[in-house]
Design a protein around this nucleic acid. Sequence first.
DNA 1: AGGCTGACTTTGTGATCACAAATAACACAT
DNA 2: ATGTGTTATTTGTGATCACAAAGTCAGCCT
Lengths: 190, 190
Amino acid sequence: MHGELLPGQALTLRGVGKEYEMSMTPVREAMRRLVAEGALSLSSSGRITTPELSNERIEELAAIRALLEPELASRALPRAHMALIERLEAINGQIDQVIARSDAVGYLKHNLEFHRTLYLRAQAPAMLALAETVWLQLGPTMRKLYGRLRRTESPRNHRLILAALKAGDDPGLRIALRSDVTSGLRMLKQ
Amino acid sequence: MHGELLPGQALTLRGVGKEYEMSMTPVREAMRRLVAEGALSLSSSGRITTPELSNERIEELAAIRALLEPELASRALPRAHMALIERLEAINGQIDQVIARSDAVGYLKHNLEFHRTLYLRAQAPAMLALAETVWLQLGPTMRKLYGRLRRTESPRNHRLILAALKAGDDPGLRIALRSDVTSGLRMLKQ
DNA sequence: AGGCTGACTTTGTGATCACAAATAACACAT
DNA sequence: ATGTGTTATTTGTGATCACAAAGTCAGCCT
């Protein structure tokens, strides 16, 4: 999810087991789970790698984000008090820092933390779980694309989100989210 | 997904293994996967049961269906030729039959087949996978609620869907889907 | 009759093993 | 140097086992 792995990277049961000092069995269960969620892909011969997404698939996942996340934000809006907005602003500050040192993993981590912090207020755990499934699928690809994204854009969208939250502006919030979610992924087409 | 199991039903690794004539290991992997998808729930002590959904959770899952499925139908619309519509009408006929003999599992099975057949045309596998995840979570609960739903309603919504498909009416299609998806689940509130 | 304590059973967990398939490495011939 | 056939290694799969925790049930006491 945080882009620690690049697309197409191979993982082995024994290798991951050794890394985390456990036997193959729990690793297998975890990997099966991640494969089921689309976070890892299973080749026809059973080998496990991080997914290499086609452009169509990336666009589809972006469309799903554009469907789910404005809804989550909209449901969080009535419960978003000042304390939450301040937390989001703090996270945004951290995003500025990781951008300054062009830390891809840090960027993805804090960016998702921003979104998750907001969506947790929506009181919609199933919907949030679906969104996280999508993030998981996009992780390696976003890491690969990180170099390509213009880094000044994202904080601007986040500021629009915060402004809409403060104003209680539901339509504006939905638009800001759709834009934030879509803008990053639109880069790849070029 | 088809409501063969009722909510709260316990499943054991050894039991399912014996039923399908395999050892615990592959059963464990399958169950882990289903737990990850929300289709089964894992108690704090590790026991596995079908989920017993709260009313809030049911409403949330219905809201997700109402978000995803109109989108899937809308994407399928431009590719929905007469052959597809005839297949959907045939499935609808089967639904009438299972309703006549009040066969809950058959109803759920054919109803989902109707939806899946339409959505397959959307060429959006990730979105369809999310929808199926939601169906999986709702399966046992829908079975339990089956007795409560009025059975004449669903075919009517399906006919509205077919009419919108024939007319190429995208807004009408989306509304028909939202209504079909929501109407069944609204019963429980009473 | 109801609640509690004890023993017994069931259950999931993590580890290890044998096996077969697939991949990688290597040597050889052209 | 490149393609090819063979060997060696890696890898996932399914099975089985020991163990600890949780659940179940019987019997007893109040």
